[in-house]
Nucleic acid binder design. Structure first.
Length: 290
DNA sequence: AGTCACCTGATT
DNA sequence: AATCAGGTGACT
């Protein structure tokens, strides 16, 4: 006691677009990049993974059997899930979790030590799940089974289905704090800790506020800000991925509160706070967010 | 509804 | 050496 809390010295590098945790915009960027790299039309020759956790509860062998000899027909995103659709009504479902990345490499023998699963393609290239923390997952099987596994995912926030009424209805049914509701994939698909906090800041809503007690007017504003923050992030992430030499501030989507504990709010100049919420850090401005 | 396990690199 | 980061699923 006695000593006033000193703001911790900030050494950790600001999170930028190239190392940001995968939420909807980052997953969408991964999808677009694979489309750009013309994964469609290739045939999968084989699959392998070393850790059982990567394909759990399937075995790597089962995934291999489901994909071998099938042609890649397209890439889709559903919330934070990626689908690699294959010929014959089959599909691969990938979830990047915290640190995963799905990417093409020129040759499977060049895969990094952090590669957790690898698909060898008939043109010599390989599709790998690169994930230092090994939390990402790969499943494969009939398309309907893969979609069933992601069926609990709610409305796509960048689709026409994400209406004022939909957000209002979800909020009215929930006693959770609004930030917890936004991160619930069954309510809105693809929001995570970062963009939920950013949308709430832009909408001026306290992340702790009970969902059902927020006015329809403020929920309308929240819906607008969710769409805006995600659309802007998709755009800047896409630009950054297409200009690999230009990562950094210029192309980064600015985060106004996330990871800014102790810094001044860009709107009012007061200090941004961090509080635990559902075991996660929530960043917000107590003055601008009510 | 809240807590833990799954992971490992960075930080304290 | 201990803690933190965090999406999700399993658990209480």
């Amino acid at each position: 006691m006695g000593a006033r809390q000193v703001p911790r010295h900030r050494i950790r590098q600001r999170i930028t677009v190239d190392c940001r945790l995968p939420e909807l915009p980052e997953v969408e960027a991964v999808r677009q990049r694979l489309v750009d790299e013309r994964i469609a039309g290739t045939t999968i020759l084989s699959f392998a993974a070393e850790r059982p956790g990567t394909t759990k509860p399937q075995r790597p062998q089962e995934v291999a059997k489901a994909v071998r000899g099938r042609v890649v027909e397209g890439m889709r995103r559903r919330g934070k899930h990626l689908f690699v659709d294959l010929s014959g009504g089959y599909s691969i479902r990938v979830h990047l979790r915290m640190t995963g990345n799905l990417r093409i490499i020129p040759d499977v023998r060049l895969r990094p030590a952090t590669a957790r699963g690898w698909f060898v393609l008939d043109d010599g290239r390989a599709l790998i799940l690169d994930d230092p923390r090994a939390l990402g997952t790969i499943h494969a099987g009939r398309l309907d089974e893969m979609e069933a596994a992601a069926s609990a995912v709610g409305v796509e926030p960048l689709s026409d289905a994400f209406t004022d009424d939909l957000l209002l209805g979800a909020a009215r049914r929930s006693k959770k704090p609004i930030k917890t509701l936004l991160m619930d994939q069954r309510a809105v698909a693809g929001l995570g800790n970062i963009y939920a906090a950013e949308a709430l800041f832009r909408a001026g809503i306290d992340p702790r506020r009970e969902s059902r007690r927020i006015s329809a007017l403020r929920l309308r504003r929240l819906r607008v800000e969710i769409v805006r923050v995600l659309a802007d992030a998709v755009q800047s992430t896409r630009i950054a991925y297409r200009a690999p030499g230009r990562f950094g501030e210029a192309d980064s989507f600015p985060l106004l509160v996330y990871d800014r504990e102790g810094e001044k709010c860009g709107n009012c100049g007061r200090i941004i706070r961090r509080i635990p919420q559902g075991g996660r850090s929530t960043y917000f401005c107590p003055h601008c967010q009510r």
